[in-house]
Computed example of a mutant assay.
Amino acid sequence: MNKQELEKIALNVREHIVRLSTDGGCFTGASLSAVDLIVYLYTNFLNINAHNLKDENRDYLFLSKGHDVPALYGTLAELGILEKERLANHLTTNDHIYWHPNTHIPGIEFHSGSLGHLPSVALGVAMDIKMRKGSNKVICILGDGELNEGSCWEAILVANAYELDNLLFVIDRNQFQANVRTEELIPLEPLHNKFTAFGAAVSRINGHDFDELHKAFSRFPFSKGRLNVLIADTIRGKGLPSIQERADRWFCNFSAGEVEQLLEELHGNNKTELTSETLIVR
């Protein structure tokens, strides 16, 4: 898909996220930061579609930062893997669409939500593919705050020990961990140097720029015999200036009226400035 088509799909996915941010809410800010990454992966990089979800030759995506699942739900819906109508079942008892990924949803490879868990699952799948001499690609999306889990770094060591160059860890570097900035809690930088010291082949890009995403993923694998790591610098709440980079916009539960205001803002039509006073934190 070309850049214009990607931007259109990404806008639609952000609209889905906003609509999921009511009647119980969701992790709005974090989901918005991951949209462009997930949209690009599913449209221009991964061999995953509505017809090959059980094919052993498909590629794999593991969403380790499972609270970003509204971005994944929205992408799967836009690509026809998940029925759009089912998004209305969010947090209801008659479906499996809720705050974290569930394998009862088409396209979800593994349950997640326990941070630091899926890097090890992804490397296990990548190792199996290597042993079978397969060509499948394996992607694991991690949050930056998730990197405080030691299991992430153990997975990196093992992946490099077994030369899993078919595995790519994508870091959604939106600078926030829950309701605090990462560098104010447990500083992560210099991330590039840390990953390199652990043996990975590392690249760093603007995670909202489809041209940069294309250049980076076109170089996969970044180095033969080494784990690939892509640090994608992103913005929490991307697309909604009123909630961008706000610590209190990790989890949001907006009223129906607030959702409509935010949709207007998303499409650049808002006539009322949305502030912390007009948007209720729940």
Rank of each mutant, 00 (worst) to 15 (best):
H51P: 11
I9C: 09
L188T: 06
V281W: 15
L11H: 13
H90E: 02
R181Y: 13
F195M: 14
A122E: 07
L87I: 13
I129E: 01
G268H: 05
A122Q: 09
R282L: 15
V39D: 08
G29M: 11
L213K: 01
R58G: 04
E5I: 08
A161P: 07
A216W: 00
Q244D: 14
M1T: 12
N12L: 06
T275P: 05
E78K: 12
I280S: 15
G145C: 08
C26N: 06
C140K: 11
G207E: 09
W99M: 15
N166W: 13
I48T: 07
R249F: 07
H214N: 12
L61D: 09
L37V: 10
L262S: 04
N179Y: 01
S276W: 02
Y98A: 13
K65V: 07
M131E: 04
F27T: 10
T92M: 03
L191M: 09
H100L: 04
L227T: 09
G257N: 06
S135W: 08
R173N: 14
Y162T: 02
E5N: 14
G145V: 05
E265A: 03
H267K: 00
C152M: 00
E109C: 03
E56A: 08
N253R: 07
N174D: 04
P187E: 13
N102D: 15
L6F: 03
Q4P: 01
E146C: 09
E7G: 12
E163A: 06
G134W: 04
M127C: 14
S223Q: 14
D95Y: 08
H214K: 13
I105D: 01
R226S: 12
W99K: 12
H117S: 08
P101M: 01
N136Y: 04
P101Q: 03
V158A: 13
E277V: 10
L213W: 07
H90G: 00
N228F: 07
M131P: 02
D165I: 03
N193I: 15
F210D: 06
V125I: 12
F222R: 03
E212P: 08
E273Q: 05
A50C: 05
A178E: 14
N270C: 11
Q4T: 08
C26G: 03
S203G: 11
K8T: 10
K137Q: 08
H267W: 02
A197S: 15
N94A: 08
D59W: 00
L262P: 03
S223A: 12
I139F: 08
F217Q: 11
H16K: 10
N57D: 11
R236F: 11
L123W: 05
S218F: 01
D233N: 06
Y60G: 09
S276D: 10
P221T: 05
C140R: 04
N179R: 11
E109G: 05
L262I: 03
G107C: 12
I17V: 08
V259L: 06
L266Q: 07
R132Y: 15
A232F: 14
G237A: 00
E5K: 06
G116N: 00
T93I: 14
